[in-house]
Write a protein that binds this DNA or RNA. Structure first.
Lengths: 237, 237
DNA sequence: CCGATTTGGTTGAATGACCAATCAGGTTTG
DNA sequence: CAAACCTGATTGGTCATTCAACCAAATCGG
């Protein structure tokens, strides 16, 4: 019988469950939630239609499972990439942004799926709760990065790390959305601008401490030729 | 017979068309695109179900009309608010952000509708084209603002105004999305951080020109107590 | 100035397609 | 042989779209 409890279903046959969830993620990422029928998913997974309902109560609970897996994956990856990054704080910050950018350009289906989930969640409390807790975790992870960066600056930035983190997250989401809609959108250029924005505002902590802006570090972080200091500019130390 | 051409339908009875589009916007903003039936829309508009198809070929073309109207409205409003803003460039930039923030908090249904459209557009070329041209216009408008701000700075920012504009737009979109999902999200705080980010990076142009950062202007722009210059900080002139 | 006729607007019931979810029955496995 | 696993046809409901009929206001011929 279909499990009425958690979407990860019964203890047995985890292989099939995984196959279903993966097939659902693929199909929904390709054709959208509304555009994908249970039949399509069953076909994609190479199983009978009824079997999906043996493991999942409803289409929505299946989407919930897909989402759950996706969130875990994304968080794990972002944590790993942040942990692996080294060097000065500005370079590390830029590395984090690059990770997000690459994720968006390399897995557009996942991003699409995420937006589908947002739309569905607005009518579905369980999904909304899942999304909220996912955002809470992303916020915490990002805020930790910001705090670490903060600690390496001569002066802390004058805004709470959580707020800073949320703006970063919002920028990443917004750029991902734009790239979905606009196939010709220059996401590289946008991320360079995003990087400049974030890092130069972090760098303003140097100014607040009475120290010159580390323009070279900034330039290195977001690519050469971007910062062209005019005559009379403050030199990095 | 139903018009096969543009979604604005025949020349006659523009009143009814407007009523339908408004009812559709209301209903879809409330219950989502998938969650709203033609029957619901007809009821909301106080007309018979069949009449909608007299003016609109399909549900999607109706959504297209809704979107068209919404885009025009949003662009008009943002242009108006930008034109009306006065004062120093940083304050004007902040005023623009405040306008976006207020728009999001005061018309959540419109924002929801916009996300619905994004989702639908991924399966619908006509809708996608409409969204793209809307984004192109928003980008142009925002880039013009950035250019104007740029011209008032001692040094131009080292990134193209279009890229800068796109990051601003993305941030606004991302924060709007987050606020939709997360009812308890502190959008005011996030916008303060966003403002600090944008304005302090604009202010880095002062540093590039060898001038001190105008911290007071920044503090005024995004609210007092946000910028707390430590002992030894550079003073504004 | 008046009936007839066309045209544009409007109605709500009928149509037909689709699809999530169910079920009655098979198959494997311990 | 039971318990878990699996199948695909069936069901019941929803919904966009169509349609036949109705109404009102023009347009027109006499």
């Amino acid at each position: 019988m279909a499990s009425t409890e958690s979407p990860t279903a019964t203890t047995a046959a985890p292989e099939k469950v995984r196959r279903i969830v993966e097939a659902a993620a693929r199909a929904m990422g390709r054709d959208g939630y509304a555009g994908t029928s249970m039949k399509d998913i069953a076909q994609e997974a190479g199983i009978a239609q009824g079997l999906i309902h043996y493991y999942f109560d409803s289409k929505e609970s299946l989407l919930l499972a897909v989402m759950h897996g996706m969130c875990g994956q994304m968080l794990e990856e972002s944590r790993a990439r942040f942990g692996a990054s080294t060097g000065d704080p500005l370079a590390r910050g830029w590395a984090g942004l690059e990770a997000a950018r690459d994720h968006c350009t390399q897995h557009p289906e996942l991003i699409r799926l995420l937006f589908e989930m947002v739309t569905v969640s607005l009518n579905n409390p369980a999904m909304r709760a899942e999304l909220e807790s996912m955002y809470a975790e992303i916020e915490a992870t990002t805020a930790a990065m910001v705090r670490e960066l903060n600690a390496l600056l001569p002066t802390e930035m004058p805004i709470p790390p959580e707020d800073f983190a949320n703006v970063i997250i919002a920028g990443i989401d917004g750029l991902a959305m734009r790239a979905q809609v606009d196939r010709s959108f220059d996401i590289e250029a946008a991320y360079r601008a995003f990087g400049f924005l974030l890092l130069s505002s972090a760098a303003s902590a140097y100014a607040a401490a009475g120290q010159p802006l580390p323009l070279d570090a900034l330039a290195n972080a977001i690519g050469a030729q971007v910062i062209v200091a005019p005559p009379g500019a403050v030199e990095p130390d």
